[in-house]
Amino acid sequence: MIGIVGYGSYLPRYRIKVEDIAHQWGRDSETIKRGLLLKEKTVPGLDEDTITISVEAAKNALKRAGIDPGEIGALYIGSESHPYAVKPSGTVVAEALGVVPNVHIADYEFACKAGTEAMFVAYGLVKADLVKYAMGVGADTSQGAPGDALEFSASAGGSAFIFGKEDVVADVLDTFSYTTDTPDFWRREGAFYPLHGGRFTGIPAYFKHVLGAGKAILERSGYKPSDFAYAIFHMPNGKFPLTAGKKLGFTKEQMEPGWIVPLMGNTYSGSSPTGFSATLDIAKPKDLILLVSFGSGAGSDAFIFKMTDRINEVRDKAEKLKSMLENNRIYLDYGQYAKYRGKIIMNE
């Protein structure tokens, strides 16, 4: 079978609490915490960006895969915060990993689903026998305008997945993508912060696509929600994924391990892939896992994975997501956060 041979994640150590952001803008933190089900979010260090996060996540994936990086024939980074508007993130990542020069590289952008997009293409290339191994990364240092609702969730982190045919940890049983032109959230060329359509991001955007892809892949594969051990849905906030999962027939218990948003925030392209990574950390052989991403604009990629026995051998070869999420946290106040995120106007 074709599937994931190695996976890994990376989260920065810095955090800001919902209370501190709410206080800055005169908002009631209890209402926000209740409404969005968020407590805190990750913040990239001054020296971290999509490239450095991708490198660290990929290093963890390589540790678990135990393969020679030189055998990776394709490397794709999905993000909506590539450090350069023109110049790939992937080339730096490939150099740092030692994947160059015989490799195909591309940066993807599709709002929050660029990560699963990178995974989808990586999987497709292995399946087409074009490359031995391919890596897909979803990573972001997400932007949210100061004072905007997104500022409570936009966070940093990422996950990397290496696809191959041998020593697979999680077989890909099926994939399905569901896409329409729906402008619910966007950022124009040159604009610093994204804009969004408020409540329009809900039913016509997130739910339509997540449920569309979810229902279709279940129908096509013939699996019922109860066949799955776990399910992960893109996490723009705490509430949406739980609502979507429930509508599809999943229980809170199935979603719980991948529902990392209350402590991590929404890492955009890294969101559902990192929830998936957290789930792989605890999944058992033969478990079925459903992963559904969502990217504004809008579309969803759905995957069904089946765990193999090998997961028990590789799991402990790199740091687990729960440990990254809960250990070594360094809290910033809003002023420090504004500096770290480049929200202060400076002289060149």
């Binding site: 001054l46 020296d47 971290e48 960006d49 490239i51 450095t52 350069y84 060149e348």
Partner: peptide, 20 residues
């Protein structure tokens, strides 16, 4: 040792990466 950004050459220049 980890892979990090060392500094940027202003807002528009090259970003320099390396070990920390």
């Amino acid at each position: 040792l980890v892979f990090r950004k060392l500094y940027s050459e202003g807002h528009t220049g090259i970003i320099c990466y390396g070990y920390k």
